[in-house]
């Protein structure tokens, strides 16, 4: 596993021989191409990368990458990925999952993997619908949304993945539009470099069952005014003319315009993704307009495997047991002659 740096890969090295079978026009293609482009730049040997998925359209992802991979069962990718990483912490482990896979059938695993902070990366393809089973509402579908299983409108209030993640103590949370490969590439790299569980919510348009559900945020014409792309250490500024920004007014975030009411760029909040206290990150996640994208939270914390390694080293140092025979013959034994 030390061969990493010397090897020069291209996107082609990460492309498997399997024919890609998503619907034409699906954002999944963008995500796949972006990943194939970023992987060679990560400096990790191909054999040290593992992609794990559950079930759903997004979960076909591992088949298309020429790395190690498991396409598992519905909702269980976090368990499998945790086992892979704990078995061999040197591996770079990625989960590809969707809104139904992660937050409905796999909800329990999703919150616990975030809580534990194992060094894994989770790509959450959120399209607010069940695609592979052909169009039922998901845990992120909106109230009133008409789907095959809610012909008169969905009555179940949705999760916001970011709120759920922060509530589950996620240390890294980023959001990006499915049609924004440049930002996506940067976020994939940030997630890779982050030590701990990284969660990336990708607003992924489903062209067949929920087409256009993110248009009000992601369309080229509105994107600059409706999104704020956050970068650590930079002021919270957005808008076509880069003249809008966020300030804190009491316990609420408020949009202000630079130049109006004496507001200057210095009055704007500066994004601190590395802050341990998630309060402001939570407010950013909840903000409807502008919709926050980029790395919202990136708080470096001790990982589970670091804690486990430290404990193991300590127990080993204090133990006289080297081989199992030492254990078997220890304590109360007796001889029969």
């Amino acid at each position: 596993m030390e061969t990493t740096a010397e090897k020069k890969y291209t996107a082609k090295d990460f492309t498997s021989d399997q024919e890609v079978r998503w619907c034409p026009g699906c954002d999944d293609y963008v995500i796949l191409r972006t990943m194939q482009k970023v992987l060679p730049e990560m400096g990790v040997a191909r054999e040290d990368i593992v992609f794990v998925s559950g079930i759903g359209c997004s979960s076909r992802f591992p088949y298309y990458l020429d790395t190690y991979g498991i396409h598992s069962i519905h909702g269980r990718a976090p368990g499998i990925a945790s086992g892979v990483k704990l078995a061999n912490p040197k591996l770079s482990v990625w989960i590809a999952t969707g809104d139904g896979d992660a937050m409905a059938i796999g909800g329990n695993h999703f919150i616990h993997v975030l809580r534990r902070n194992i060094d894994l990366n989770i790509l959450l393809f959120n399209n607010e619908i069940y695609g592979l089973t052909k169009g039922q509402f998901s845990p992120t579908s909106l109230i009133g949304q008409k789907t095959k299983s809610s012909p008169y409108g969905n009555t179940q209030p949705p999760f916001s993945p970011g709120e759920l993640a922060l509530g589950a103590q996620a240390r890294f949370f980023a959001r990006v539009g499915g049609g924004s490969p440049k930002e996506m590439a940067q976020i994939f790299m940030d997630a890779h470099q982050f030590k701990g569980t990284s969660l990336i919510e990708i607003l992924q348009n489903c062209v067949i069952f929920n087409d256009g559900c993110f248009n009000h945020i992601t369309d080229k014409e509105v994107k600059d005014d409706k999104q704020i792309y956050l970068e650590h250490g930079k002021p919270m500024i957005f808008g076509k003319n880069r003249d809008k920004g966020l300030v804190l007014n009491g316990l609420k975030l408020e949009t202000v315009t630079i130049g109006e009411n004496g507001i200057t760029q210095e009055d704007l909040l500066v994004h601190n993704a590395k802050e341990q206290d998630p309060t402001l990150h939570y407010m950013l996640v909840r903000l409807a307009t502008p919709f926050a994208t980029g790395v919202i939270r990136s708080f470096e914390d001790v990982t589970l495997e670091e804690r486990e390694d430290a404990l193991t080293a300590q127990v080993k140092a204090n133990s006289s047991f080297r081989k199992t025979d030492d254990l078997f013959f220890s304590g109360e034994t007796y001889e029969v002659k």
């Binding site: 598992s72 269980r76 368990g79 499998i80 086992g83 892979v84 704990l86 061999n88 591996l91």
Partner: peptide, 11 residues
């Protein structure tokens, strides 16, 4: 069990 399956895959 799924964590064990992951560990088995990883050796």
């Amino acid at each position: 069990i799924t964590s064990a399956i992951g560990a088995a895959f990883a050796g």
